[in-house]
Amino acid sequence: MTTEAPLLRLENISRSFGAIQALRDISFDIGRGEVVALLGDNGAGKSTLVKMISGGLEPSSGRIIYDGAERHFTSPADGKAAGIETVYQDLSLCTNVDVVANFFMGREIVKKYLGIPVLQEKAMEAVVAKALADAGTKIPSLRTNVEHLSGGQRQAIELNRFVHWGGKLVLLDEPFAALGVEQTRRGLDLIRRIADQGIGVIFITHIMSQAFQVADRMVVIRQGKVAGDVRREDTTADEIVQLITGEALGGRARNADRENGQAQPAA
């Protein structure tokens, strides 16, 4: 990256839930247009970290410096206003309303009549139709409630939603968990494309091959601490697995590779 200030800098971020210390002294940077894969075992603290960056949780201590200034987001609305888009691990859709309503959740197109904002359904539907068509996502009707859609279709809506709204930093918490092979490939391309527009991306995954396909850097969290922060070209899948598990390379690490079940880049 260039010498200009990073897009996001985390300084000694800690967070505890009562007696549980979920994160301690997390520090790392992410630059504009950079893709950082955030890796770690179940319960390592990845989702917690993402929620603190997006504004959904406040750190117990530490500083978040974003876009040149220290920030204290107290709600996701603050994060959004600052240009941080998030796709959460547990999906954030309202299944009782239709696809269009979900796409525009909180940012509806309105026209004011006598000062009263009125929803512009036709205009919104056209935008959603175009966004989904561009992304190659097929959904039978934009006016069906999301409860009738499949898990993959729901995830596709969330992904297309953040692409449409853009922003400066995108946080993706296991965004492809419910996607098929083809949709996952499109999703990975998408990450690259938005990074090329200068948007920073933090991407959480358990699948090593995905991380190696798109990430510029990999940050490994183990038991709430940064266990490693390495550039992709300087590391190997074996090394990352070792950082995740905290064990020296041996039988167990190799097994973990196989469990991930994906083609590994030549180590």
């Binding site: 997006s54 959904g56 709600s75 996701p76 609305a77 959004k80 206003a81 998030t86 959460y88 999906l91 954030s92 859709l93 309202c94 299944t95 009782n96 309303v97 309503a101 959740m105 909180g106 940012r107 509806e108 929803l119």
Partner: peptide, 18 residues
């Protein structure tokens, strides 16, 4: 619209900045 969304999934509505 936001009222319906809060009734459907308050967490999602909150995360969407509502």
């Amino acid at each position: 619209r936001h009222l319906l969304m809060i009734g459907g999934n308050p967490t999602a509505a909150y995360r969407a900045g509502i």
